[in-house]
């Protein structure tokens, strides 16, 4: 079984940024069949509104991982869109041209509907990058000013149909989130985050098709055996499991 983990934080709250820690993580991943990890950076280490310098430091750590294990980590560029178009453009260009990053990771600096997202999506279009937007149902959390609900991420994907968007955290997005994504072919959902709640993945496959779902763990917050096990435990065909665990990501990330 070959797996691509589309949602990891190998460095988390400063932990994991040494060569030995990276080696341990790669060994851990390989032991679970994970052949590649998308490294999204230590995205909340400086709070939800990192400065330009802090974004650079986060992305430099990701780049370091890619240098240590170039065959294993794919880097995504952590951004704070509220810093403005110039800062966004400069950091994306740096991450792509100097480090070969493949996507953009957006956390909770702003809501996906905010005007500042225009520069992010323009950069994604210019550099052919995938945009991974942290998303969670805001029905109970009430932070929508800066925290994207599935409806917000769906709005973003609808507004920019030529950019591929990943709506992170299937379980946190819930049944409503799956339905928000249904009509948007450029919107993918990853399985990362939350406990392995039963049936939601089965529902997502039924509504979206297996081809728009990516395996993600949210490691180290989540346990790899659990996040893989929830896919293996769902009522899916072998082909659907293979799509979710590997093939969709391989195609999307052009591997």
């Amino acid at each position: 079984m070959r797996i691509i983990d589309a949602h990891t934080h190998p460095v988390f709250m400063h932990d994991g940024a040494t060569p030995a820690a990276a080696r341990r993580l790669v060994a851990h991943g390989r032991a679970h069949g994970i052949v590649k990890m998308v490294a999204l950076g230590d995205v909340l280490v400086h709070g939800r509104l990192p400065s330009a310098a802090q974004c650079r430091r986060i992305n430099d750590e990701t780049a370091q991982l890619m240098r240590w294990h170039p065959d294993y980590f794919l880097g995504f560029c952590c951004l704070n869109p509220t810093l403005g178009a110039r800062a966004v453009e400069r950091e994306v260009e740096r991450c792509v041209t100097q480090h070969g990053f493949r996507g953009i990771k957006l956390e909770i600096s702003n809501n996906a509907r905010d005007a500042c997202m225009g520069a992010v999506m323009a950069a994604a279009r210019r550099w052919n990058l995938i945009v991974l937007q942290h998303t969670w149902s805001q029905t109970n959390i009430h932070q929508r000013r800066f925290h994207s609900d599935p409806a917000d991420t769906a709005w973003l994907a609808r507004r920019y149909p030529d950019v591929t968007v990943i709506m992170a955290h299937l379980t946190g997005c819930g049944y409503r989130g799956v339905l928000e994504a249904k009509s948007l072919p450029n919107l993918f959902v990853d399985t990362s985050g939350a406990f392995p709640e039963a049936e939601i993945l089965d529902f997502a496959v039924q509504e979206l098709g297996a081809e728009r779902i990516l395996y993600g763990s949210d490691l180290p917050i989540r346990e790899t055996s659990v996040t893989v096990g929830r896919v293996l435990g769902a009522r899916l065909s072998a082909a659907q499991r293979r799509q979710i665990l590997h093939d969709n990501a391989a195609k999307l990330f052009r591997l």
Partner: peptide, 18 residues
């Protein structure tokens, strides 16, 4: 496992693959 709320396979693998 917290079945049926959680996926049983995932919870068993937490132990089995530890």
């Amino acid at each position: 496992t917290n079945a049926p709320l959680f996926e049983t396979r995932a919870q068993v693998d937490k132990l089995r693959l530890a």
